[in-house]
Design a protein around this nucleic acid. Structure first.
Lengths: 254, 254
DNA sequence: ATTATATCGTGTATTTTTTACACGGTGAAG
DNA sequence: CTTCACCGTGTAAAAAATACACGATATAAT
């Protein structure tokens, strides 16, 4: 017999009052049996209107009435952690080929009010445009990351950790491109970095930096619908990046 | 009722044949109930003889006969993940005030032969000297990290991930000091970095780099028992490090 | 058509950081 | 009293990061 109970967020799209009761019963049983549940929570970032956004859903638990919650679910018995995260992502965004990476496990004893649940946080970056079709479905919402007050469970802490992880990560690895269209102008790229890192950067030096890596490919196309001189559109060359030999020693810097 | 079953490694020091049977029974039951177990595994690093070592134990499972295993245990229902890791560390090394950090969760379906167990890997750095008293107990062994062949479970993979994590981490954060005595010479520190990162560094520039951070404190003492001119002994000033404001933007570098 | 405006794209001088490298000093061992 | 191995410091050259300016080109307003 395979237990199937809800996680921090509603896994079924057909959430109803009758469902709720069932959920609570199962959670209670888990709790009384002293079994630790294991879930996966996805911090799905998007970039829109020059701001970093995160995809959230209204919590279904009374205790967290109207609070925002990350997208998550219990891990099934037959699936890896990564698979579980991909499943959630697919269910919620319809997107398949996305950037996804594990960030950290969270297992404080009281983090879930109904039972002991350890969750593994994943971070995902998607192009918000690709996802727009599906957003109307339910209680899903893109929310600014900078102006978030309370959230359900320990999801605020998880989001904070993931946001800091992202800030560090985009400076060392080429993930930012996942938030942009395949083709992008250099200004769009810089806006992305400035928004995520909350810094102002010099346009010319930013340009120099990226071109010196030799990983941006000129598509020959130009921006359109801009009220000024259009910039060239580039795409990131992942192949070249893979083949590139990375220097091992990068120095000590506390 | 609180389930208590063994993890990837024997939690009890009194491991015996009778115990083994009990373990298997419980694992089988878990497996048939479709419950996912959750454990913590500690990658405990030490530094000795100018080499990075890891603390391992002989696996108790027949399938992994004589293979090396990390130190781990199932997470108890009433303890946080971090607490579980600390508990294992304390049980095995007798050490308390140690560096410990979560690295990654591993949850491949078939990673444990007896049941589905998701494990959270922790990385710990200890001074190998402090631990020598307790090593005689059982099957514990300090093993070179560079010359390790097969290991039990997916522990080789976990170790690899943690080793790479360490290589990156010691360049950005002051953790290396946990592997050294409180007081150390600059050469010892450099040997540590060279061993862990597998690079040769210029002695003078290494010195310059560290002193320019202003975090090394001259103890006034000198090395002893060296067959040459003794070097000064320093200690790391953690207080100063905490107070130090770190620059946010450190540039893009793929 | 002409002008205003906003961004594009490039180059250069300055500062800072990293790297490479040399020499005199001190303690132990023979 | 010489050899050896490492300690401790300084400096010149190379590389990287930063600051900053100007002409070009598109749209929109006049």
């Amino acid at each position: 017999m395979s237990l199937k109970i809800p996680s921090d967020t509603v896994p079924e799209t057909t959430g109803s009052a009758g469902m709720q009761k069932n959920i609570k019963t199962i959670l209670k049983q888990l709790e009384s049996d002293g079994i630790i549940g294991i879930s996966v929570d996805c911090v799905i970032f998007g970039f829109d209107d020059n701001e970093l956004k995160v995809l959230l859903i209204k919590s279904d638990l009374e205790k967290f009435d109207n609070k925002w919650s990350l997208l998550g679910d219990l891990v099934n018995n037959h699936e890896d952690l990564d698979q579980a995260a991909y499943r959630i992502l697919k269910e919620r965004t319809g997107l398949d080929d996305v950037y996804l990476e594990q960030v950290k496990g969270f297992g404080a004893v009281g983090r879930h009010p109904a039972a002991r649940v350890v969750t593994i946080a994943y971070c995902s970056l998607i192009n918000i445009e690709h996802h727009k079709l599906k957003i109307l479905d339910n209680e899903l919402h893109w929310h600014r990351v900078t102006t978030l007050s309370e959230m359900a469970f320990d999801h605020r802490q998880i989001l904070d950790v993931c946001y800091e992880w992202l800030q560090k990560r985009i400076q060392e690895h080429p993930l930012g491109f996942s938030l942009l269209p395949k083709q992008f102008s250099l200004r769009e790229l810089q806006n992305l970095y400035e928004a995520i890192l909350d810094v102002k950067l010099d346009r010319r030096n930013f340009r120099k930096k990226f071109f010196s890596m030799g990983l941006l490919e000129d598509t020959g196309e130009l921006e359109s619908d801009v009220p000024h001189r259009p910039g060239k559109l580039y795409k990131f060359n992942y192949d070249k990046y893979q083949k590139k030999e990375r220097k091992k020693w990068f120095g000590i810097d506390f």
